[in-house]
Measured scan of single mutants.
Amino acid sequence: EEERTFTNEEEARKAKKEAEKRGLRVTVTKDGTTWRVRIG
């Protein structure tokens, strides 16, 4: 499991799409101005 943080919503969405392409489970949460993308 890996967690990545982004300040840019577009980049967070891109990371989510890429992980889904690899067949991984992805959770995206917004924490104030930060987007957290949890993969795995």
Rank of each mutant, 00 (worst) to 15 (best):
E11F: 04
E1F: 15
E11S: 06
T34E: 09
T27D: 05
R36Q: 06
R22A: 11
T7E: 11
R38F: 13
E20K: 04
E20W: 04
R36Y: 14
E10K: 10
G40S: 14
R36V: 15
G40H: 15
E9M: 06
E3P: 04
A15T: 05
E18R: 04
E9N: 03
K16S: 11
G23R: 02
K21L: 13
R22F: 07
E11T: 04
K30Q: 12
G23V: 02
V37I: 08
F6P: 01
E1P: 11
A19E: 03
A12R: 00
K30T: 14
A15P: 00
G23F: 03
K16W: 14
A19Q: 03
E9H: 06
T33Y: 10
R36I: 15
A12V: 08
E18M: 07
W35E: 01
E20L: 07
V37T: 01
R22K: 09
E20N: 04
R22P: 02
K17M: 14
R36A: 05
G32I: 02
E18V: 05
T7V: 08
R4P: 03
E3W: 12
T29D: 05
N8H: 06
E10Y: 12
G23Q: 02
A19C: 11
D31C: 07
R4N: 05
A12S: 03
G32N: 04
A19N: 03
E11W: 04
G32V: 03
V28M: 14
T34N: 10
V37M: 06
W35L: 03
R4F: 15
K17T: 12
V26S: 04
K21T: 10
A15L: 11
F6Q: 00
L24A: 04
R13L: 15
I39Q: 03
R25M: 10
I39R: 02
E1V: 14
E20F: 04
L24R: 05
N8R: 05
E3H: 05
G40Y: 15
E2H: 11
T29C: 09
D31M: 08
T33C: 10
T29N: 04
F6N: 00
R36C: 12
G23W: 02
E11D: 13
G40L: 15
E3Y: 10
E1D: 12
K30Y: 15
R38N: 10
I39S: 04
G40M: 14
D31Q: 08
E9F: 13
V28R: 00
R38M: 11
I39T: 05
E10L: 11
E18T: 05
F6E: 00
E9I: 09
R13G: 06
V28N: 00
E2I: 14
R13W: 15
R4S: 07
R13P: 00
T27S: 09
T5Y: 12
E18W: 11
A15H: 08
V28P: 00
V26P: 01
A12F: 07
T29Y: 13
A19I: 07
T34P: 01
A19R: 01
K17R: 13
L24E: 04
V37D: 02
I39W: 07
E3K: 03
T5R: 07
K21P: 00
K14A: 14
V28C: 07
K14Q: 12
R36F: 13
K21A: 14
T29H: 09
L24P: 00
E3R: 03
T34I: 14
E20G: 03
K14G: 07
F6S: 00
E9W: 15
D31G: 02
T29I: 14
A19P: 01
T5N: 06
G23N: 04
G40W: 15
A15R: 03
E2G: 07
V37K: 00
R25Y: 11
E3A: 05
E18D: 11
V28G: 01
E2K: 08
E1Q: 10
E10F: 10
R36D: 02
R4A: 08
E2P: 07
K16Y: 12
T5E: 08
E20D: 04
K21D: 14
E3M: 09
E11R: 03
T7H: 10
E3G: 05
T7F: 11
L24T: 02
V37Y: 01
T5A: 06
T33F: 11
E20H: 04
W35K: 01
T5S: 08
I39M: 06
K17A: 14
I39P: 03
K17E: 15
E20A: 05
K30I: 09
G32M: 02
R13M: 15
R36T: 13
G32K: 04
R22D: 05
R13H: 12
V26E: 00
A12E: 00
A12D: 00
N8W: 03
W35M: 02
F6D: 00
R22N: 09
T33L: 11
K30P: 04
V37H: 01
K16R: 08
G32L: 03
E9D: 03
R22V: 07
T27E: 08
E1R: 09
N8I: 06
R4E: 07
F6G: 00
A12N: 00
K16L: 10
K17S: 13
T5L: 12
E1W: 15
G40E: 15
E10I: 11
F6V: 02
T29G: 02
L24N: 04
A19V: 03
K14Y: 10
T29Q: 07
E11L: 05
E11I: 02
A19G: 04
G23S: 03
W35D: 01
T27N: 05
E10Q: 10
N8E: 06
R4D: 04
N8M: 04
T29P: 00
A15Q: 03
V28I: 15
K21G: 12
